[in-house]
Design a protein around this nucleic acid. Sequence first.
DNA 1: GTGCCGTGTCAATGACGCTTGACAAACCAG
DNA 2: CTGGTTTGTCAAGCGTCATTGACACGGCAC
Lengths: 64, 64
Amino acid sequence: MRNRLKVLRAERGWSQQDLAERLEVSRQSVNAIETGRYDPSLPLAFRIADLFGMAIEEIFQRGE
Amino acid sequence: MRNRLKVLRAERGWSQQDLAERLEVSRQSVNAIETGRYDPSLPLAFRIADLFGMAIEEIFQRGE
DNA sequence: GTGCCGTGTCAATGACGCTTGACAAACCAG
DNA sequence: CTGGTTTGTCAAGCGTCATTGACACGGCAC
């Protein structure tokens, strides 16, 4: 899966740490998802979508 | 997460085995997701949404 | 009744998601 | 140059996702 997390985060001027706190996950998890080392669980994908006010499909796309 | 998998499957007259084959997962995985024993991975959630021609959010909702 | 199908569930195994703690490199501030 | 922030990455550990193989039960055909 590809994702637009890094862009969305940068648009808001947040560090990985900031985002991690808002999502209630570790900074390493945010980093791993951004760098494509793994995909988030479905519940976390929902929290991410909620935080950015978007649909999951607008943030995550197949590919890679 | 709650999900409407069982209903959507029944609407199409598919067995768990039928659905499992279309999703390329085991029958046990379909059953576990339907009975709420665990949530699918994000990639599998995408395959499910694609199969039913719906958004992930239309099939899976928070709760439980 | 016997047989088959669909479903629910168990155990064991392997891969993935997420954690904490740590370290290094790049960057800019002072 | 020194110090703080940010990012990338590693390792170890634990719980979850998904697998195969197996078993039990209810429903329906015959």
